[in-house]
Computed example of a mutant assay.
Amino acid sequence: MPRPTCSRCQRPLGHCLCALTPDLDSRTRVLILQHPSEAGHALNTARLAALGLANAELRVGEVFDDLPQWLAQPGYRACLLFPGDDAVALTAYAPAEQPLLLVVPDGTWRKARKLLHLNPLLAGLPRVSLGSVAPSRYRLRKAPGEGALSTVEAIVAALDALEAPQRFEALLKPFDALIDGQIAAMGDEVFTRNHLR
C-alpha cells in the first residue's frame, strides 16, 4: 500500500517540506516546463521552486500547445534560461526595465534539449544564462559539468542576479532538507561509498 503523501509538496507525510517552503514574491515571472520523466522523481526540485514562488508556474509535458498564450504575458519579456553561444548572462534590472518571463526547462540535459526540439517556439526565444555560480548543493548526483545546478538552484541564482539586492536563498531550505533526508535514508556508509568520490 502506498504511503500517504502531502497533496501540496507530494512528499510522504512524514517528510513533508511545506513548513520549510517560503512564499516569495518576485518581479520576474518564472515558467517551469517539466519533462514528464521528472514529475514523479523523489528529488523534484522544480516543484519546490514553483511552490515557493508566488509568481511561478509549473507545467508538465513534452509538447506544450498552449505555449504561445503562456509566453504572451502582458508586461513581461520572454526568454529561455538555457546555455548557448548567443546566451546573455543575467544582470540586475535597470530601474524602469520590463521584467522577464523566465522560461526554465526541467529535465536531464538530453530531455531539456528534447523539449526545445519539440517546441520550436521555445528554441526561438532569446537565451539567458547564469554568470559564475557557487558549486551545486545537490550532493546526490555528480554534476555533468562545472556550473551545473539543479533546477531550483538555477532559478535562485537567476533571481538573485536579476533582482539584487533581494535574495531568494530561502527557496533552498526545503531543497537542503530534501537532500539531507535522502542521505539519512541511505545511511552514511552508503552515501560515503557511492557519492563522496
Results as ranks from 00 to 15, higher is better:
Arg3Asn: 05
Pro4Tyr: 09
Pro4Val: 06
Thr5Asn: 03
Cys6Gly: 07
Ser7Lys: 11
Arg8Phe: 08
Arg8Asn: 10
Gln10Lys: 14
Pro12Asp: 06
Leu13Pro: 00
His15Ser: 14
Cys16Val: 09
Ala19Tyr: 01
Asp25Lys: 12
Ser26Leu: 04
Ser26Pro: 09
Arg27Pro: 00
Thr28Glu: 07
Val30Gly: 06
Val30Ser: 07
Leu31Asp: 03
Ile32Tyr: 01
Ile32Leu: 15
Leu33Thr: 03
Pro36Gly: 09
Pro36Ala: 07
Ala39Phe: 07
Ala39Gln: 14
Gly40Ile: 00
Thr45His: 03
Arg47Pro: 03
Leu48Thr: 07
Ala49Cys: 07
Leu51Val: 04
Gly52Gln: 08
Val60Thr: 15
Gly61His: 12
Glu62His: 10
Asp65Met: 11
Asp66Gln: 15
Gln69Met: 11
Trp70Cys: 05
Leu71Gly: 08
Ala72Ser: 15
Gln73Tyr: 12
Pro74Cys: 05
Pro74Met: 05
Pro74Arg: 05
Gly75Asn: 10
Tyr76Ser: 06
Ala78Pro: 13
Ala78Gln: 01
Phe82Arg: 00
Ala87Phe: 06
Ala87Asn: 00
Ala89Gln: 14
Leu90Trp: 10
Tyr93Glu: 01
Ala94Asn: 08
Pro95His: 04
Pro95Ser: 05
Pro95Asp: 02
Pro95Tyr: 09
Ala96Phe: 06
Ala96Gly: 12
Glu97Cys: 05
Leu101Cys: 02
Leu101Asp: 03
Leu102Pro: 02
Pro105Ile: 00
Asp106Lys: 04
Gly107Tyr: 00
Gly107Leu: 01
Thr108Asp: 02
Lys111Arg: 15
Ala112Ser: 14
Ala112Asp: 01
Ala112Leu: 00
Asn119Ala: 02
Asn119Glu: 07
Pro120Tyr: 04
Gly124Cys: 08
Arg127Asn: 04
Arg127His: 02
Val128Thr: 10
Ser129Thr: 15
Ser129Pro: 00
Gly131Met: 09
Ser132Ile: 12
Ser136Cys: 10
Arg137Thr: 07
Tyr138Gln: 11
Arg139Leu: 12
Leu140Cys: 10
Arg141Tyr: 06
Gly145Asn: 11
Gly145Lys: 13
Glu146Gln: 14
Glu153Asn: 09
Val156Phe: 04
Ala157Leu: 09
Ala158Val: 07
Glu163Ser: 11
Ala164Asn: 09
Gln166Met: 12
Ala170Thr: 01
Leu171Cys: 03
Leu172Glu: 07
Leu172Tyr: 09
Ile179Leu: 12
Asp180Asn: 13
Gln182His: 15
Ile183Gln: 13
Ile183Val: 15
Met186Phe: 10
Met186Val: 08
Asp188Met: 13
Glu189His: 13
Val190Arg: 15
Val190Thr: 14
Val190Glu: 14
Asn194Pro: 00
His195Trp: 00
Arg197Lys: 13
